[in-house]
Each structure stands twice: as C-alpha cells, then as structure tokens.
Amino acid sequence: MAHDDESDASLMGRAAGGDPAAFDVLVRRWKNRVFRLALRFFRRPEDAEDVVQEVFLKLYRTSATYRSEAPFEHFLLKIATNACVDRLRDRRRRREEVLSSITSDSAAWLDRALGGAALQAQQAEAARALAAELLATLRPMDRTVLVLMDLEGLTSREAAAATGSTRAAVKVRAMRARRALRRLAQRLPQGGRP
C-alpha cells in the first residue's frame, strides 16, 4: 500500500483533503486499539463495534480540525472516550436496582472469582456479567477515567487529555470511582449468603 509507512498526522491531512485511501490506512491501523477499549465498557462485541464505527465516522468528519502538533493517538482517544461515555450514560443502571437483582448463585460465583478461585466457564461468565452490571452503576466519566488509568495504563496527564479535563479532576474522579467500587464489593453477598 502506498500510504502504509506514512505518519498518522500526514494521513489525517490527506483524509481531510478527501483522500479515502489515506483514511482506510488509519482505520486499519487503529481499529483494533479502539475496539479493545470499547470492549472494556460494552461486553457484547456488536455494541463495541458500533462504538468503533461511530468513532471513525466522527474522526472522518472532524479530520480537518486535527492539528498535527498534537499526538494523533490523543486526538483519537478523546473521540473514542466521548463516544463511550455518551453510550454509557444511556445505559447507566441504578445501584439499588442491580444489587436487588443479584441471585445468590451469581453472587457466590462473583465472590469466588474475586477471591481468585477457579470457576467453570459458565460460572465465570455469570460472574463477569454481574461484575459488568455493577460497573454500570458507576458514573460514566468516573468509570472511564478509572479504566483508562488502572487498566489501560494511562497517566493522569494522559487520562486528562483523553477526557478533556484537568489532571486534578481526573484524580478526583478516579478516587471517587475506586471508593464506589470498594463499597460495591463490600455490599456483595459474601459467599453467596446475603
């Protein structure tokens, strides 16, 4: 491919000028990274893929606003983060509603999973589903910041750039999310016995 060795910034410039081949290279280069990030928030691959499509549509439409002085990954990550947060807002669950719907079996499996015990595939899947339900009760932006910092390994400065906020705000959000998670984990019925 003619554009394969080009920098992201140069490809963005070409895409903004109406070169679809340049945009195709960007999509090929970054689609997996964005998809894996989306899977952190949406368990169904179809949902994650929907988000990735939205991200690249937005990237294409705003390609003319990209300034090459900023790292491309930050620009893309910001679009991806916004897309994820928007969708998480639509799907946010109420904590009490989730906690009251937990079955003793799934609580027991999640408790064992959190304790590091080995589970059968079906039980592990139920535990993961319940964990995802519990995470859906967190504030979307707080959850996003926590995932970026604790799972994606971003620094507070990078997370701030990705979410369009300040470092101080990012640290507060991460702290708040960790505290909410601790409370959730404490309120889980221990060993399946509420």
Partner: peptide, 26 residues
C-alpha cells in the same frame, strides 16, 4: 477491600487482548 474492588473492575471490564472487530468492519 482495595484488592476486591480492583478485581471487580478487571473482571467487569473484559479487555480481551486479542479481540478484533468482525470481518467486513471496514
């Protein structure tokens, strides 16, 4: 408690390192 919270986050946040979009995505 901190460890349980961190594990809860990891467990509920999927994160399959080898995951890729379905064929025909582009």
């Amino acid at each position: 408690a901190e460890s349980r919270a961190a594990l809860l986050l990891r467990l509920g946040s999927g994160g399959d390192e080898g995951a890729v979009p379905r064929a025909g995505f582009e």
